[in-house]
Amino acid sequence: MEKLSRKWRKSGRSSQFDDDDNFSLPTRDDFRPIDSQEQEQLIRSFEKNLAQQSLLWKSVFAGLLLCYAAFLIFSIFQQAYYPWELRYHAYFMYEVDSWGIMSAEWAAVVVCFMVITGLLHNSKHHRRWIWYSCFPGILSAVFWLHHMLRLAKFRWDILWLPFGPLSASSICLYVDHVLNESSEEVRKLREYMYAYKAS
C-alpha cells in the first residue's frame, strides 16, 4: 500500500512540473508578426477546413432527410394499396379520408425535398428554400394536430407526424445559420489581414 501511495505522489509531482512547462512565459519570438504569406496560408487552411465541414454536415442532414422522405413515400404507397394497415394510419380511420392522409404525407415529402435543395444549393439565396419549406410544414402540423385532438385518446407515439417536417426545417435552418456564422468569421479574419514582410 505504501509503494502505491509513493508512486501516486511521484506521478502527481511529475505531472505538476509538466503542467508548469505548458504555462511558461512567452518568449520574444511568440509575438513576432505573421508574414503576409503566412497569413494567406493560414486563412486558406481555415477556408478549406470550413468548406469540408460545411459539405460534411450538409450532406449528413440531407441524407437523413432523404431517408425520412423515402419512409414517407413508402407510407403513402402502403396507405394507397393497403389502407389503414399501418398503426399510425389506423388511428385516423374514422376521422380522415385516405386521400387526406396521403396528401398530408405528400406535403411532408415536399418539405423534405425543399430543405434538401436549400442545404445542397450553392446560390446566395439557398436559405430561402429552407424558409419556404416551413409553410407546408406548418400546414401539415396543423392538419395532424387538428385530427389528433379529435381522437378519443391523444396518441403521444405519433407526435412525429405533425412535428417531423417542421422540426426538419428548423434544425436545418439552425445548421445553416451556424455554418454561415463560421464563414462570416473567416471572412472577417481575411479583412483583418495586414501587410508585413519578414526581413
Rank of each mutant, 00 (worst) to 15 (best):
E2Q: 05
S5Y: 09
R9E: 14
K10L: 11
S11V: 12
S14I: 15
S15T: 09
Q16N: 12
D20W: 06
D21G: 09
P26H: 07
T27V: 11
R28H: 13
R28N: 14
D29Q: 15
F31R: 09
P33Q: 04
P33H: 05
I34G: 15
D35I: 02
S36V: 05
S36M: 07
Q41M: 10
L42E: 15
I43N: 03
R44Y: 13
S45W: 15
S45V: 14
E47V: 04
E47G: 10
L50V: 14
A51Y: 10
A51M: 07
Q53W: 14
L55D: 10
S59Q: 04
G63T: 05
G63N: 08
L65T: 02
L65W: 02
L66R: 03
L66K: 06
C67I: 12
I73G: 02
F74D: 11
Q79H: 05
P83K: 00
W84S: 03
W84T: 08
M93Y: 06
V96P: 03
W99H: 03
M102F: 04
E105G: 06
A108W: 00
V111E: 00
V111P: 01
M114A: 04
T117V: 15
T117A: 14
G118D: 05
L119T: 01
L120S: 10
S123A: 03
H126V: 04
H126R: 04
H126A: 10
R127Y: 11
I130D: 00
W131D: 13
C134A: 12
P136L: 01
G137D: 00
L139Q: 06
W144H: 07
L145K: 01
H146F: 07
H147K: 02
L149D: 15
R150E: 13
L151P: 09
L151W: 04
K153F: 13
F154Y: 07
R155S: 12
R155Q: 10
L159V: 02
L161R: 00
F163A: 01
F163M: 09
F163Y: 07
P165V: 01
S167Y: 03
A168K: 01
S169M: 00
S169G: 05
S170L: 06
C172R: 00
L173V: 02
D176K: 01
V178H: 07
E181C: 15
S182M: 13
S182N: 15
S183L: 10
L189K: 04
K197P: 11
K197Q: 13
